[in-house]
Computed example of a mutant assay.
Amino acid sequence: MNLTVYLAGQIHDPWRDELIEKAHSKDLPLTFVSPMTNHSRSDAIGEEISGEQPTKIMKDDKASEFNNLRTEVLMAKSDVVIAYFGESYKQWNTAMDASTALAKNKPLILIRDESLHHALKELSNKATATVENFDQAIKALSYVFETE
């Protein structure tokens, strides 16, 4: 059995690489998908597809359409969603993706440092599991494959 894992969260640093590397080191049968992690491409995709937009707001709105399309398709095909809340960036997209996962009845693993407990308490209590780091998230996924 192979699971597809959607990695929700900010795209400004390579946190996904670290998590994927940890999964590969355990030889887990996982396929990872995510939002577009090339920030420039994510911001420009609306104009690449639909042409130049007259304002920055319309450019953002058009890019959002196609980024939302990508998220909807990839999340729908995923078996599990991992939402990572880091300390470095505002996490609005992460919260939106986590909420979408819950609305779609997707198993959700929330990764957040203990310092974010209070800010994320309601979302954490809706998640399937909440952990504090990548190692714990990988252990949770590994447990799915255990037979005894």
Rank of each mutant, 00 (worst) to 15 (best):
M1P: 05
N2R: 15
L3A: 05
T4Y: 03
L7W: 15
A8Y: 00
G9T: 04
Q10C: 00
Q10P: 01
Q10S: 00
I11M: 02
D13C: 11
P14G: 15
W15P: 07
W15S: 05
W15A: 00
R16I: 02
R16H: 11
E18M: 10
K22F: 06
A23G: 13
H24V: 09
K26Y: 05
K26H: 12
D27Q: 14
P29Q: 08
F32E: 15
F32S: 14
V33Y: 14
M36Q: 12
H39R: 12
H39M: 05
H39Y: 11
H39P: 03
S40M: 14
S42N: 13
S42D: 13
S42K: 13
D43N: 08
D43K: 12
D43W: 01
A44D: 07
A44V: 08
I45P: 06
I45T: 13
G46C: 13
G46H: 13
E47R: 02
I49H: 04
Q53W: 00
T55I: 08
T55E: 02
T55V: 06
K56S: 03
M58V: 04
D60K: 10
A63N: 09
F66K: 03
F66M: 03
N67T: 01
N67I: 07
N67W: 00
N68A: 11
R70K: 15
T71L: 13
E72Q: 09
E72F: 01
V73F: 04
L74Q: 08
M75S: 00
M75Q: 09
A76S: 14
K77T: 03
S78I: 04
V80K: 04
V81K: 07
I82C: 04
F85K: 10
E87S: 09
E87R: 07
S88A: 00
S88I: 02
Y89C: 02
Q91T: 11
N93R: 08
A95I: 02
M96I: 10
M96K: 10
M96S: 08
D97F: 07
A101N: 01
L102E: 04
A103S: 10
K104I: 05
K104A: 08
N105D: 06
K106F: 10
L110T: 00
L110K: 06
I111N: 03
D113G: 06
D113Y: 06
D113W: 03
L116E: 00
H117R: 07
A119K: 09
L120G: 01
L120W: 04
K121V: 12
E122A: 07
L123A: 05
S124I: 03
S124L: 01
N125M: 00
A127G: 07
A127R: 05
A129V: 13
A129Y: 14
A129Q: 14
V131R: 14
E132H: 11
E132D: 10
N133K: 15
N133F: 11
F134G: 05
F134D: 07
F134S: 05
Q136G: 03
I138V: 15
I138D: 05
S142Q: 15
Y143T: 07
V144K: 09
F145M: 13
F145L: 15
E146N: 14
